[in-house]
Amino acid sequence: MDAPAFGPVHQIDAGVLNVGYVDIGPANGQPVVLLHGWPYDIHSYADVAPALGASGYRVIVPHLRGFGTTRFLSDTATRNGQQSALAVDTIELMDALGIESAIIAGFDWGARSANVVAALWPRRCTALVSVSGYLIGNQAANAEPLPPSAELSWWYQFYFATERGKAGYAKYRDDFAKLIWRTASPSWSFDDATFERSAASLDNPDHVDIVIHNYRWRLGLAPGEPRYDGLEQQLATSPPITVPTITLEGDANGAPHPDPGAYAKKFTGQYKHRSLSGGVGHNLPQEAPESFIEAIKEAGNIR
């Protein structure tokens, strides 16, 4: 049985991209921007977005650069996956849609982008919902070695540092993504139709380049773009996040993630943390949509 459709997907020019996005709910509703991770796509929010739209929110769910129907406007644009570039994409999409401020939420890459927006442009972020908490990084910190067990969990980052890894990801993209889904969410019994619905978004001409650059940039093995240097210098200070925030963590997250106690002090505004039980893994909004919806509504009402 095919997984249900999620859409329609609209297209809009925003910054260096033509962005594919879903827009659900009343046009005058409280804006919510939902950002997906890797190797996932907008369907992580296929249950969350319609429910929020039915509750009166205007929900925007974009395909990140390198995913789905999002494309670069120029063939010569750098296929850049660094953290500040993805966050700027979010701001430029909001500008293109005429959204001044929104509740911004995400997991994995999407949580990092949401963190960056909240830290650097707090007036654009009404509230934040972040799976796995504070994920802003910098190349200097990433250069520090971790204990072997922690390094093991990042095996794919080191694989992607090699040309063999890049070729392997290009050749076995779906197999690779399914392996990550299973290891990051060991208790999630997704079916083939659910996986294939999202895997289609990885068949993007820029996908491999964006993913490889993202992980190589983190390790200092690939340069960023000079236009983002100032932003990265600010992010290297691990700036606090002052906007109202709720962080979430599942009890069965098999992906690398920090302990909630390690990042609580980075959120200096109104802040709450929720730990979810019952085998909830890395793709929290798709595995526990009700809890994610509740967090969005609560974060937007924190005063």
Rank of each mutant, 00 (worst) to 15 (best):
L179N: 05
F158T: 15
D191I: 13
S149Y: 11
A170D: 09
P186E: 05
Q157M: 05
R182C: 08
F176K: 02
A150S: 11
S153H: 02
T183P: 00
K178T: 02
S149N: 12
K178R: 05
R173Q: 14
F190K: 05
D174F: 03
A167K: 04
A150R: 12
Q157R: 15
E163Q: 08
Y156L: 01
A161I: 00
Q157W: 13
D191S: 12
S185D: 13
A167P: 02
I180N: 02
A177M: 12
Y169A: 10
T162V: 09
K171N: 10
W154F: 09
K171T: 12
G168N: 11
E151P: 06
F158A: 12
F176V: 03
A167H: 07
Y156R: 00
Y169M: 15
L179W: 11
R173T: 12
L179A: 08
W155F: 10
T162F: 01
R164N: 05
R182H: 12
Y159S: 01
P186K: 10
E163W: 00
L152I: 01
F190R: 10
G168M: 06
A170I: 03
F158E: 11
D174I: 04
G165C: 13
K178C: 00
D191G: 15
S187F: 04
K171G: 02
W188E: 10
F176R: 04
S187P: 03
G168T: 08
Y172D: 14
Q157K: 13
F160L: 15
Y156G: 02
A167L: 09
F160K: 04
E163K: 08
T162C: 05
S153E: 14
P186Q: 05
W154N: 08
W154R: 15
R164V: 05
L152D: 08
Y156K: 03
W188H: 14
S185T: 11
W154D: 08
A167E: 15
T183R: 09
Y156E: 02
E163N: 12
E151S: 13
R164E: 07
Y156F: 07
F176T: 04
W181P: 06
G168Q: 06
A167W: 04
F158W: 07
W154V: 03
S187H: 14
Y169Q: 09
R164P: 00
F160P: 00
A177S: 15
S187L: 14
S185R: 10
S153G: 03
A184V: 02
D174K: 05
D175C: 00
A170S: 10
W154H: 11
D174P: 00
L152F: 13
Q157E: 07
D175K: 04
Y169H: 14
A161S: 13
G165V: 14
I180V: 13
S187A: 15
R164G: 03
K178I: 08
D191M: 06
F158D: 11
Y172K: 06
R164M: 09
F176W: 10
Y169N: 04
E163V: 00
K171H: 07
K171E: 11
A161F: 02
A161R: 08
A177H: 13
T183F: 01
F176C: 06
